[in-house]
Design a protein around this nucleic acid. Structure first.
Length: 307
DNA sequence: CGACTTTGACCAGCGC
DNA sequence: GCGCTGGTCAAAGTCG
């Protein structure tokens, strides 16, 4: 936790004041969502991420949302979860979706966060009998993967994102009545993890933190046509005039940290479909009946539909 | 029976 | 050094 709080987060929130993306006729409202950018570094909150983020990072973030870094659509907020902000464009606690990211752990840890402790225990040393292999190798400092946190308004804790996850732990969260769940991607050799917890400030908000990057495509066995839909949305980006783009965590990972995504050929199978596209808002609260299945599976993520 | 969840225990890192 | 906390493991339980 202490590590995490020292991490350097990018945060973007989708404002909720432009919900009606799809009208009764199924046509899209072309108005893109406003995007709120802010970031935290350690306990500090930077209302203007560009003030400390590298140009590249900030551009990546802005570009991920089809914005220029100087766009008037970029606002700043003071805190995750709709905390205080003094901006003229206040972020309500109802912000639909947000995400934040942290840099890769190695870089983070060594430079900015904690003192670099040398390995403590020799790996063959202790009584590792039972718990050996539990935490990688003893004495081997845990390396932190790049992480991205989504804040999603949903009554479902574990949001379907197309991948298969296995829950491997759950812990009570300090100062929160809601537990945090830990998931791993079940695909072999994929080390991506995610944590899911509810905001104690707004219990309707689910905070999903992804760590690492998938090195494989989305499994095809996902509940009926959903897989097809996911793969369609992932692999066949259409012109933005006719199709709403879809955003998934992995897309954002690619977009947000392209400099991090060239490890181990990660994401080589994914086109970077968000370039020069706008993100459009998505529906919450199941307002569009024809999206029932999708919303059932992806309650508050982005999805698209052919017009 | 395999896949998945639950849950208590363990470990590492950090602050005091 | 000690205690707290987050993160992880793995056995047991559950489900389809």
């Amino acid at each position: 936790m202490s590590d995490e709080h020292r991490d350097h987060y990018y945060l973007a929130s989708f404002q909720e004041d432009h919900h009606h993306v799809i009208d009764e006729t199924g046509a899209y409202n072309q108005k893109p969502p406003s995007i709120v950018l802010s970031s935290t570094y350690g306990s500090q909150v930077f209302d203007d991420p560009s003030s400390y983020m590298s140009f590249t990072d900030y551009n990546s973030l802005a570009n991920a949302f089809g914005l220029s870094p100087s766009s008037s659509e970029v606002f700043s907020i003071g805190d995750l979860g709709g905390g205080g902000n003094n901006n003229e464009n206040p972020v309500t606690p109802n912000s639909s979706v947000s995400f934040s990211s942290s840099e890769a752990g190695g870089e983070e840890d060594s430079g900015k966060t904690k003192k670099e402790n040398p390995p403590k225990v020799s790996e063959d040393g202790g009584q590792c009998s039972k718990k050996e292999g539990k935490t990688k190798k003893k004495g081997e400092k845990r390396q932190r993967e790049p992480r991205f946190a989504f804040m999603t308004k949903s009554e479902v804790d574990h949001l379907e994102d197309g991948y298969r996850w296995r829950k491997y732990g759950q812990k009570a969260v300090k100062n929160s009545p809601y537990p945090r769940s830990y998931y791993k991607c079940t695909t072999q050799k994929c080390t991506v993890k995610k944590r899911v917890e509810r905001s104690f400030q707004d219990p309707s908000i689910v905070i999903t933190t992804y760590e690492g990057q998938h090195n494989h495509p989305i499994p095809v066995t996902l509940r009926g046509n959903t897989a097809a839909m996911f793969s369609h949305s992932m692999f066949t980006p259409a012109p933005m005039e006719t199709t709403r783009p879809v955003i998934f965590p992995q897309d954002i990972l690619v977009q947000m940290a392209p400099h991090l995504s060239n490890q181990a050929g990660a994401n080589s199978t994914y086109p970077q479909i968000l370039n020069d596209q706008h993100l459009y808002d998505h529906q919450y609260h199941h307002q569009v009946p024809e999206y029932g299945l999708v919303q059932d599976i992806v309650p508050s993520m982005f999805f698209k539909q052919e017009p």
